[in-house]
Design a protein around this nucleic acid. Sequence first.
DNA 1: CATGAATGAGTGTTCATTCAT
DNA 2: AATGAATGAACACTCATTCAT
Lengths: 199, 199, 199, 199
Amino acid sequence: MAPTDKQRDKRSRIIDAAVEVFAFKGFHAARVTDIAKAASVADGTIYNYFKSKEDLLLSIFEEKMDELREGLVVELAEIDEPLDKIRHFARHHFRQVREQSAVAEVLQVELRTSKKFIKDYKPEKLFAYLGIFNQLVAQGQAQGVIRADVDPFVTGWAFFGALEEIGLLWVLSANRERHFDLDGAADRIADLFIRGMAP
Amino acid sequence: MAPTDKQRDKRSRIIDAAVEVFAFKGFHAARVTDIAKAASVADGTIYNYFKSKEDLLLSIFEEKMDELREGLVVELAEIDEPLDKIRHFARHHFRQVREQSAVAEVLQVELRTSKKFIKDYKPEKLFAYLGIFNQLVAQGQAQGVIRADVDPFVTGWAFFGALEEIGLLWVLSANRERHFDLDGAADRIADLFIRGMAP
Amino acid sequence: MAPTDKQRDKRSRIIDAAVEVFAFKGFHAARVTDIAKAASVADGTIYNYFKSKEDLLLSIFEEKMDELREGLVVELAEIDEPLDKIRHFARHHFRQVREQSAVAEVLQVELRTSKKFIKDYKPEKLFAYLGIFNQLVAQGQAQGVIRADVDPFVTGWAFFGALEEIGLLWVLSANRERHFDLDGAADRIADLFIRGMAP
Amino acid sequence: MAPTDKQRDKRSRIIDAAVEVFAFKGFHAARVTDIAKAASVADGTIYNYFKSKEDLLLSIFEEKMDELREGLVVELAEIDEPLDKIRHFARHHFRQVREQSAVAEVLQVELRTSKKFIKDYKPEKLFAYLGIFNQLVAQGQAQGVIRADVDPFVTGWAFFGALEEIGLLWVLSANRERHFDLDGAADRIADLFIRGMAP
DNA sequence: CATGAATGAGTGTTCATTCAT
DNA sequence: AATGAATGAACACTCATTCAT
């Protein structure tokens, strides 16, 4: 017996299947039955692990945001300068978008489809992710490489908004035209913010 | 008989009603019947003016984006300096968000709910709006107040992403906590980008 | 000014338009608007001449059955022998099917679609048409060329059923394969019944 | 718990319920909900067994035509002479009309209401049923009791048309007046065709 | 834990008909 | 008589979720 899908932890099999199905058909068009088939489980089994279809989507967000943040932390650990870290923040973000485009599609497109997510959900994982940027700003300010009057709240969300918009654009352009250069965009955005926050 | 709603152009009555209902209940939860009632027309009448419920949402986008752009053009006409115009771009954007919060809610929240909009629709009106920013960048570059190597594409979308993210945050915070200072945010973002693009 | 459609009697223009539209799209799929357009009148005008869409269908039946019967009477007037007349009955019936296939399509296919026609309507015009056959049987019996014990009721409806079934088959086969020989079928059916009723 | 409806095969419960509801209210006026209630299942359950409301109607046709043909085959097996079998064909047909009038109503009235059935559907089951008649003609011709020049195609459809017309008349007369004598009609029609085809 | 047949609530859209002009 | 914009009732079908096995 090969250690196939059958043996893998059911919960993660369902998560993986859902990412693929959500990315391919979209959250609304995706049928719970499709996900169950893709995960080789019965429809009802999904409800042993997730409260609802929407909870499944939110769980994807939680897990993937955790992974994203953890990966970022690891990458930044090897960098010294706060400004350099900000540059790597952007690069790491876009690298993930590129390497896990199905996940990116779900996070950037499908998640926004979810009214619950947008309006009712407290995206703690997003705050945690963004918190890293805010810390970098604080460090930069402490070191005098970032102006003291830079507002971390506004600047942080602006930075995230910029990453999101460019990332979304890249994901959506996938089906229409050749992708533009994401890595170059990372540097340009990092540059823009670093100069913008400079003393 | 007062010259009430009855006399007003039906199409715009429906648009206005739809903005209110979509903002209040959300696109999905909004019933076509609700909109018809709010506009004081029969359900079927809506289909004399719009192909579908979704077409109605998209029409709102088109009309409101046009108004937004036109208003911006008028405001910028009185400003001379490109950098100053960029500052006013941000201010005008957020002023509209604040003054027409129902419209902002629909454009920033409900529109993203529409898969068709995100994936299939060519948002020409959005390009036109953003095109103004790109022109300002070009002017700034011509005048030497913006670095020649600033990429209008990436920078433009980053600017728009920042505005959107902050605007979305403000609209959503409406129901949870006190609004933060939008006008201040406009200046901070304008500052960030102007410094970021400076030679 | 050419004596175009515009001048022709509106009622008959509507009838003609309805025959075409019903034959082409079917009664259910046919829109009153389609018929109005084809007749170059406003939708509402149709209701000045017909109580409803169904009444329009029924009116087609009435008019066309009258024409069918009248044409038959004229043709039979030139024939002497009752049995010969029966043969011409079948020929005339199928000749009309062939020459006015749109009308035939409506009478044989669309009319049966109408619940009202099948269940509630007293098809006097059909009785009148069939009555001719019954008279021929009576004449044949009087002349001793048809058995006295032939039941005109059963035989008449059987004759009509046979004509209908073959006619329907021919009309429907129009879109699928080459038509079979209707005139030959007329003779075979007439033969069958004449022999079947012979002493 | 009584071994009631609940235990019976769901598919056939739905078929039976649909026959009753279609016969009583007509296909168009029949609501899927009505059928579901009559079958003691949920609306959605019907769609586990049938693709659509129309598919349900067509399935009734298929099943009942099979039963009709099978019953006929059994009855004819006990008869020797081809001409005698033709007589029994007519009798069996009308006996079924009389004994299963709801089924007859659906097959003869509602089915013709279905555009799909009339125009697009290949009624194989009907061909199979009629094929029996054609075989009898061939046998009769082989035995010299039917003329060699009788056309099985035209004669077969004429026979079927006659049965249908009389059957329809009987079913429809149910609601208006006393039924006429179907068994007598069977013999008259059989007689007519047997004499008509005789050498 | 796993299954999957059964459930039943929920709604955008069409279009015959009307009637104010 | 003619117009055509407005009306609003009507409904098959889907699919997330449940629960008996």
